[in-house]
Design a protein around this nucleic acid. Structure first.
Lengths: 368, 368
DNA sequence: CGCATGAGGTAATGCGCATTAACAGCAGTG
DNA sequence: CACTGCTGTTAATGCGCATTACCTCATGCG
């Protein structure tokens, strides 16, 4: 190449967006220290020692002095470009509820996610519109935005399997928070609803209950299926009657959960009710409303349990028997798994145990 | 491997960190579409229309199809390096408290930030370790990480002015949530504590109170200073006695806020107390404890007001007179300002009004 | 017919850093 | 004394994208 220093207009960058200048680069540090840019990079990144690259103490000192005196700070964009990774983890949520509700289920995860991400040296990218179910989450290919990060966490009961499978197939590191078999090869961390639900039934059986009924929503998320399975397992383990008659699906307008219906169940010998928790808390609300409507005393005349934590707006009532989902722990575990996947680890599923909560809504069955 | 092409061994990057499948780049999109990388860049950035570059509709379509089918997404680091922008907004917090506390002050902002960011077409980067005061926040130059984003929001009462001023001086777009004069030229959005506090005092004066006392923490954040100023302004406007005697700084062990002290003030003619809100809620807690300890009825014997919203764990008590900080609105406004700064706008300060809350802790003064 | 004009696109370049082959010096060996 | 093995440093290269100078065709026009 010939005439450069001459008056040739050169392509490439424009003359710098006014105001943004003055940041010293490694090249300038190198000039001041009288070494090459490569040496500066080696010294400043400490890669000289780590990789057995020998750099004399004298050179090190010169470079460090020069860097300090110029106030050098590395440009993260450049570092990340050169290193082919950006230390960014994505967070994307499919929970389509308004922010006020989301606050209660989404944020506890985030607490754990953030702590563990910090521990692993990652920053987080929140894909906007995802937690609010807004425009950002819509449209085919919207999920592709997440490829910007080194890997991504997905939250929510109903993940779009087809969209996800594309990412998984491409080998993009993905971890779903919540058990999921849908896209083959998807890594996930989930709460162990089966064991936890079984434990709740066992506790009720231990109190003397012989007929227990599950109220669940008419919705087929894995989380609901797991609770039902644990519930039925628990009945079987305690020798109690199971089968379809032990499960009531609410949500259907023709099968409303009314006070009358509750009275009818009691007449049939049911002494305890178990509701599943979801992000809306609908099943638990309906159950409580029906029991209150029937004027029943709890736990005097009827025992109640909730397979999860009560929604925040019902927090003032008596603490229900049930279990707590360790959301921060789940978030942290998800980050660990994701970091492992980014490093080339396998796509496995992990269950995290829930904590049993005795509560104050269950007692011995009433003797008629 | 046989010497490819020209047989020259080439330095530069290693052959990609095993397992990490390369994200599609513009070059691959170009290959699939049968055009050059430059064309892809032009089409995908929409720069063709904006700058009057002519690109045929046919070519546009080919490029867009290819990009979609490959799931192309631009590399933020590369965009940033080449063009100095990547549609990412940073969020960094200096509030160094444990997550449980943070939950109540940090998250409401985030709700507004996320909504507005989505509206403006930005995704968010949460710099980890910042809100938890963890490793990520430590060390000089830790703030430099935020340069990855196009601009950054800073939250927290005590921003390190020296670190921030470097960013500001370099022309990096920064907005602080909370009024701040510290680094010259720092843009901020803040709640109008002065007006809101004045309004609370006016309300008390309107009820007939003639001596009102402010309980504040021994801490010199702008937010505290503003409340005090509004309080004193309010006293003056209503012709009530102000001066240092109207303000009590708690926090000092020798000046504890005790029941006895409260009784003494009442004897001196004080009939109402105002406490400032901070992230810990210490002043309000201390005041309530002292009043309760003195066995005083509120609002029968003494009126109370809180310059802010009550901490979540005290939410069950009577709603205090005071004002609510519109945190989501503040967050949204901060994003708008930041977007404007990125676009080259001025570094201004903006005040957002707080909503007066009548509450149930203030009434007419007791007649002795 | 010769040349300007414009449309549609491509080649070349660099952003700031990390990486590595290659080179320069310099002691020890056979 | 050529040769190998070190140690310390540098030149060259590319990461993925944005930018702009420069091509190549048609077409219009005096």
């Amino acid at each position: 190449m010939a005439k450069e220093a001459a008056g040739r207009a050169r392509p490439g960058r424009a003359p710098a967006p006014a105001g943004r200048r003055a940041r010293p680069r490694q090249a300038e540090v190198a000039g001041l220290a009288g070494v090459s840019q490569a040496t500066v990079s080696l010294v400043l990144s400490g890669r000289d020692i780590a990789t057995g690259r020998p750099i004399s103490a004298e050179t090190r000192a010169k470079v460090l002095d020069a860097a300090r005196s110029l106030g050098y700070v590395p440009d993260p964009a450049a570092s990340r470009l050169a290193a082919a990774r950006n230390n960014l983890l994505g967070v994307f949520s499919f929970t389509a509820t308004f922010p006020t509700d989301v606050r209660h289920s989404y944020y506890p995860f985030l607490v754990g996610v953030e702590q563990e991400a910090a521990a692993q040296g990652y920053d987080l990218v929140l894909f906007t519109g995802s937690s609010t179910g807004g425009a950002g989450a819509r449209g085919a290919g919207a999920l592709n935005r997440v490829r910007l990060a080194d890997g991504c966490l997905f939250l929510g009961r109903h993940a779009p399997a087809d969209e996800l499978s594309r990412l998984v197939a491409d080998g993009f590191p993905v971890v779903h928070v919540g058990r999921s078999d849908e896209p083959e090869g998807l890594a996930w961390v989930g709460a162990d609803y089966v064991s936890a639900s079984r434990e709740v039934v066992a506790a009720l059986a231990g109190l003397g209950h012989r007929r227990v009924l599950l109220v669940r929503e008419d919705d087929d998320a894995p989380a609901s299926a797991d609770r039902e399975r644990g519930f039925l397992d628990g009945l079987a383990a305690s020798g109690l009657p199971g089968g379809p008659g032990a499960v009531f699906r609410s949500g259907d307008p023709r099968r409303e959960l009314t006070a009358d219906r509750v009275r009818a169940w009691l007449a049939e010998g049911v002494t305890a009710f178990v509701a599943e928790e979801t992000d809306t808390g609908a099943a638990w609300r309906a159950l409580r409303a029906a029991v209150d409507g029937a004027g029943l005393d709890c736990p005097g005349q009827v025992s109640l349990a909730l397979l999860g934590s009560p929604p925040a707006d019902l927090a003032d009532g008596p603490v229900p028997m049930g279990f707590d989902i360790p959301r921060p722990a789940l978030g942290a575990e998800a980050v660990r798994l994701l970091a492992a996947r980014i490093a080339g680890g396998p796509a496995e599923g992990t269950l995290v145990a829930c904590a049993f909560r005795p509560g104050a809504t269950a007692g011995p069955p009433a003797t008629p």
